[in-house]
Write a protein that binds this DNA or RNA. Structure first.
Length: 420
RNA sequence: GGAGAGAUGGCUGAGCGGUUGAAAGCACCGGUCUUGAAAACCGGCAACGGGGCAACUCGUUCGUGAGUUCGAAUCUCACUCUCUCCGCCA
């Protein structure tokens, strides 16, 4: 949510920022609504002040046993006006909120300007592509050949975009999640949470999925939605809170399933388990003081990277351009992992600084010298577990179709060298 | 699912129709004292919004939404949530 004061003072600049994010100029409309609302409010408030003072007077007259009927008539006259103005103010205020709640965050100055993923820029890369003396297979060829990855049965249960992992692959998924959580809690300074997977509208509004992107989500009953990411419950833990400075920075993590309708992705990545309606992810969230959020983004990125480095898998980091960033982000790094079977890089993590955008929606502040200041929020995958499993299969595959166990995961596999 | 109790500021907790934006305590901030710290003492301290260059001033807010009233934290209704007991259950 945007600071209306910023728009009042910098309407042209604001429109330019919105244009970078693919929005039409809107500051005129916003300022017009804002103006009418404030003018209405001013008149309304002076009438309310009149009413209050007359009422107070009535109380005084009555306590002195004097006649108050002429004062009471006065208030009666004002009443109608008050009701009309209040109605008008509510309408204008709601229109304003509707517009503001659907506008994306302003991009940080260091973000490249562009319209789609072709304009993203490479930030850095790590490791090297592995060399094979055979044609590396895709993860789904490997998984299906091993008889441990099954799309048909999953489809029988739940339809398309679901997968079923069996035996050693199911165990691998569990090992990856444990490894990530152990790393983030023991070495990277995050506190682990076990969270609800169903949330209310207000939580999704806070992180920015609602009201605009409801079609990307699954609903559960009348009042709940399935979380598309643990970012939602993790970040909204501090919704409507005024934190103490000594509670910051707050670094939290959770391993949860994520549910996405993939409404706009029909026909995209239909083979394999790259894009599923349900997947698991270890999420990282930081709540920090404003002046620290840029450093925190780098720190979070490094925490996510540390997983792939320990797994010794090649990746590159892209800085997303203004047109490719998510709604709430002011700056986003994507970690793209190398997948030899697909001969391409694929996103495995997305780390974003949302600065005060979500904090304004959630009304989350912290106390600094008797002032209340909006916190900054950050979120990042650390990492997507399913895609990490894919990356391990494709990067650690052997000619016979078996999979080597990465060194750091061996302890979860009785020190076995290979999956089978 | 049945029965009851409750929701007030960052926290605890008084208030149950008219200087109550709200006692008191804790926390926090400033000061005195101290070599320093603690303790003690003194002072300050809700949020959000409107108007004003400013001093300041006005409005809204006591779970949420409606209603009664000249006037609501206080009365009425609906909803949400929390707690206790019983039943059921992983």
């Amino acid at each position: 949510m945007h600071n209306i004061n910023f728009i009042r003072e910098n309407p042209t600049e604001f429109d330019n920022y919105m244009k970078q994010r693919g929005e039409h100029p809107i500051s005129n409309k916003i300022l017009e609504l804002d103006k009418v609302k404030r003018e209405t409010q001013t008149v309304l408030q002076s009438l309310l002040a009149d009413r209050n003072s007359i009422s107070k007077n009535i109380g005084k007259l009555k306590s002195e046993n004097k006649d108050a009927s002429s004062e009471m008539n006065k208030v009666d006259e004002i009443k109608n006006k008050i009701n009309n103005l209040k109605e008008l103010e509510t309408i204008k205020d709601e229109e304003l909120k509707t517009i503001l709640s659907r506008l994306p965050n302003i991009a940080d100055k260091t973000v490249p300007i562009g319209s789609n993923e072709a304009d993203n820029t490479k930030y850095r890369e790590w490791g090297e592509k592995p060399k094979f003396d055979f044609n590396p297979k895709t993860h789904f060829e490997l998984g299906e050949n091993l008889g441990l990855m099954n799309f048909e049965t999953a489809s029988k249960l739940s339809g398309s975009r679901f997968v079923l992992l069996k035996n050693q692959l199911s165990k691998l998924e569990r090992a990856i999640a444990n490894f990530m959580l152990d790393k983030h809690t023991n070495e990277n300074g995050y506190i682990e949470y076990n969270l609800p997977f169903l949330v209310k509208d207000s939580a999704l509004f806070g992180t920015g999925q609602l009201p605009k992107f409801g079609e990307d989500l699954f609903t559960a009953g009348e009042d709940h939605w399935l979380i598309p990411t643990a970012e939602v419950p993790l970040t909204n833990m501090v919704r409507e809170e005024i934190l103490n400075q000594n509670q910051l920075p707050m670094r939290v993590t959770s391993y949860t399933p994520c549910f996405r309708s993939e409404a706009g992705a029909a026909g995209k990545d239909t083979r394999g388990m790259l894009r599923q309606h349900q997947f698991t992810k270890v999420e990282l969230v930081s709540i920090v003081e404003p002046q620290h959020s840029q450093d925190e983004l780098e720190r979070m990125l490094e925490s996510a990277e540390s997983i792939l480095q320990d797994l010794n898998i090649h990746y590159r980091i892209m800085t997303l351009c203004t047109g490719d960033m998510g709604f709430s982000a002011s700056k986003t790094y994507d970690i793209e992992v190398w997948l030899p079977g697909e001969n391409t890089y694929r996103e495995i993590s997305s780390c974003s600084n949302c600065n005060d955008f979500q904090a304004r929606r959630m009304n989350t502040r912290y106390k600094l010298e008797n002032k209340n200041i909006f916190v900054h929020t950050l979120n990042g995958s650390g990492l997507a577990v399913g895609r990490t499993l894919i990356a391990i299969l494709e990067n650690y595959q052997m000619k016979d179709g078996n999979i080597k166990i990465p060194e750091v995961l061996k302890k979860y596999f009785n020190n076995s060298d290979t999956l089978i």
